[in-house]
């Protein structure tokens, strides 16, 4: 599957034909919304400026985080729309609050949207789980997801397990994996982002993969034990 890297910073350009333009942004933040070539370090600068109560940064960040409802709506659609519009609005609100609370954790090693995407997926999956627990089994809404939605749910569960395993690795090794596979960077680009040498980046990547393999294997064994011998 060869999908080009998206143009992370071009939200305004992409949405200018479909939604009302936002306010004119003063200062350097205009570049952070509009310029596709700006780096994750610019994203970090934007986040830090926002956390320092910079009003212009808030405008710029608001533009950038327009991706939140769109990501959630798209993922909800892929899952066969288990959440109705009103529930989705609640998840948008909750996800945005979580993002704002966690903004200080954003390291600036990857694009802001990639970080946002992970949190949005996590919040959406949790919301769907909560909704399933609330609904009685004979509620037609409980089984509204079609086969494609069920397949996507399984895929998202696997992806979630992978993300959790990467989180468990933590540190610079986890960042290396994310930069390589989720941001689609070459080892040269990973090394540049981490301000290290290419052999060092490759070494980190290899250690991270080994650790990930250990964690995933342990998870699978635990899952098999949980299912019991009858289901094997």
């Amino acid at each position: 599957m060869n999908i080009p890297k998206p143009c992370w910073r071009s939200w305004r350009d992409l949405t200018s034909t479909t939604s009302a333009p936002g306010p004119t942004l003063p200062g350097p933040f205009r570049r952070m919304v509009q310029a596709p070539q700006c780096s994750a370090q610019d994203d970090l600068a934007l986040v830090r400026a926002f956390l320092a109560n910079d009003a212009a940064a808030a405008e710029a960040l608001a533009e950038r985080l327009r991706c939140v409802p769109r990501i959630l709506a798209a993922q909800n659609a892929r899952l066969g729309r288990p959440l109705a519009e009103q529930d989705l609005a609640d998840v948008v609100q909750d996800s945005t609050v979580v993002l704002l609370q966690k903004l200080g954790d954003y390291s600036g090693l990857g694009a802001l949207e990639g970080w946002v995407f992970r949190i949005c997926c996590f919040e959406l999956m949790n919301a769907v789980r909560q909704r399933r627990r609330r609904l009685p089994l004979d509620d037609p809404d409980a089984v509204r997801a079609d086969d494609a939605g069920a397949r996507e749910w399984s895929r998202q569960l696997a992806r979630e397990a992978l993300e959790r395993a990467i989180d468990r690795i933590g540190g610079v090794e986890a960042e290396t994996l994310r930069l390589r596979h989720f941001e689609g960077l070459t080892f040269e680009e990973v090394a540049a982002a981490q301000q290290t040498t290419v052999p060092a980046a490759k070494g980190r990547y290899y250690r991270a993969l080994q650790r990930l393999e250990e964690i995933m294997t342990a998870q699978e064994q635990k899952e098999e034990l949980r299912r019991g011998p009858a289901n094997r």
Binding site: T18, A58, R66, I71, V92, L100, F182
Partner: peptide, 29 residues
């Protein structure tokens, strides 16, 4: 596969609008 899926989902999301677009902006401000 997970990375490509995430990048595709983000790119696809960029090309759409939702009724909740302004909700985030209000919340951030």
């Amino acid at each position: 596969a997970a990375g490509a899926d995430a990048r595709a989902a983000i790119a696809a999301a960029a090309a759409t609008t939702t009724p909740h677009d302004d909700q985030v902006r209000d919340l951030i401000l």
